[in-house]
Amino acid sequence: MKRWIALGLVMVMVSAFSAWGGAKPVILATTTSTQDSGLLDLLVPQFEKESGYQVKTIAVGSGQAMKMGERGEADVLLVHSPAAEKKFMADRFGSRRRLVMHNDFVLVGPATDPARIKGTSAQEAMGRIARSQGLFLSRGDNSGTHAKELGLWKGAGVVPEREKWYQQTGLGMGQTLDVAAEKRGYTLTDRATYLAHKKRLGLVILVEGDNALLNIYQVIELAAGKNTRINSAGGQAFADFMVAPKTQELIGRFGVDKYGAPLFTPDAGKNPASLGI
């Protein structure tokens, strides 16, 4: 019996070591929001079927995704941090950046709204939260959402870092929403994650529809010149797939069955200036 157990263990290990193979995989570094919304579960298998590439989706914050790109540890990026992306492209880490889609950020908080931000502009809302010292939960993780939030504070002329009412979770969006709900604080979230969590949160949307709150996703191919190990062909194939008309149609319909409205607006081929970036 012992011999059989040992044999079984060896077989298990051998099969675990030989569990992959085939075409060179494409490493997609992206944000947690694209994964947590379920969009990639729809698109990635479609791409794998069409192209024959195997995709390894690494869902991290936009900041970390771009760091992976800089180091040549990813083949293609799908990120939403326009200012940081601009620098990334200027530093020649990326060879091409294309618009994929957008949705929007919303400011959420308790229905009692102690800082009275409901219906104001994003900038005004940030100012009011600071003045009334309403509890604000920040991602604090260098993600695209965090970058957007910092931009909004800057626009409102507020430096929140050392304030008592400003708390950084260092967690993903879903968990930050949970913390905000428990502590009855305000937070900035992308709409898709908020909708996915809404049912148990008790947080309501207070500010939305402001142009400053657009959440724009772009796909970036990495410059192969910087690193010979990058799978440029695979990265390019994925980027092409993301902006292809058929994929864009899938994106435009995603979420309708579950939330009654699409979670993302497809943007491929649009002029970035039309979205204000």
Partner: peptide, 24 residues
């Protein structure tokens, strides 16, 4: 592992992800 669906997703990493998604 990267918690990649169908490749490196194990029970613990799937639990973290489902919690993040709010699927308690």
């Amino acid at each position: 592992g990267g918690n990649i669906k169908g490749q490196t997703r194990v029970l613990t990493t799937a639990t973290v992800m489902e919690t993040g998604k709010g699927n308690f």
